[in-house]
Design a protein around this nucleic acid. Sequence first.
DNA 1: GAGGATCCCTTAACACCTGTAAAGTGAGTG
DNA 2: CACTCACTTTACAGGTGTTAAGGGATCCTC
Lengths: 185, 185
Amino acid sequence: MTKTPAPLRSRLISAAGSLVERAGSTDAVSLRAIAREAGVTAPAVYGHFADLEALLDAVLDQGFADLRAGIAAAVAGSADPVERLVAGCHAYVRFGLAAPARYRAMFGPRRLPSGQRAFAVLVDAVAACAAAGRSRSTDPREDARLLWTALHGVVALRAAGGDADWPPLEEQVDVLVARLALLGG
Amino acid sequence: MTKTPAPLRSRLISAAGSLVERAGSTDAVSLRAIAREAGVTAPAVYGHFADLEALLDAVLDQGFADLRAGIAAAVAGSADPVERLVAGCHAYVRFGLAAPARYRAMFGPRRLPSGQRAFAVLVDAVAACAAAGRSRSTDPREDARLLWTALHGVVALRAAGGDADWPPLEEQVDVLVARLALLGG
DNA sequence: GAGGATCCCTTAACACCTGTAAAGTGAGTG
DNA sequence: CACTCACTTTACAGGTGTTAAGGGATCCTC
């Protein structure tokens, strides 16, 4: 019962993922480097992906799946709408900061569409707070958008990695959620 | 009095700037393409910059100078601390959205230090509002940071350019400033 | 169990682009 | 005239994505 090696396709995706992380951006990674990292030669890639762009797309899709899963897991921990909203936001920034370059690629140029879907979850979470009388929001969609925007800013700036003496992550997120989702109403 | 052609050095910087914008990221532009755009051959660059990286650094430095100038001009329009804060924030997002790729490079990985300086201006602006009793902020430094973070999010997400039906930019910024700088106290 | 087909991968090669160094060229200045 | 400076031409040594042809293991069929 020896361990079967992971199928090449997924090995390529994860190799590409760590390469992207190491290089800091998707267009600094080459198909050949990915193949090397996965222990195969370059043309082997073409058996699983149409071309380099398709491979990188797969990395990002995987990222969106991970993000949804991470948020879902965090949110599942409670039934209280405010706690759920806060937990989801924490999970979001945690995801982004765990793999900044991939996050940047996910929400960078020309790739928002997939991200918009995750956004719907956030709208519902804010709306749930409002419905429960825990938020003064009269326009959950708009307030969720502001919140998402701010969370994106948190991830992007911290990921930029200046030495910057940032305040504790969790507290900062808590404040943003409170002020932008108008909690405590 | 014929028009003297711009000196090569600055022609290279602006050529590089528009190339970056067109390519969407700094590491998608080549030294040769920049030289071509500026109407010279590649080695001519080395008379003005140590190497490609130095040229791109110059583009970003230029960007920071433009940003400071833009904010200063906007802020100069009024003596009211709140109006000044709001005008500065509008100028900030306008700058970012005018050249998204350059903005991204400026505040992307490993390049925050220069950005932190512009941040000081924002802290002062929030503090001024608090001092004038126009903001309830008790920690201007921290609230300015939240505000900057959110503004960065605005620029980054909108620049990502999903078709996304964003709400009007100015109103969104106004709300963020009001809620994060705790205006109306 | 042998023969043959099927699948995945490898080796080889293409055409092209990259950053950069060395040497050459021509105009402007003393 | 000679010198300097700014640029060009040439060249190198590599890396790029991608295609075409070859090889070897595995599995199905007889």
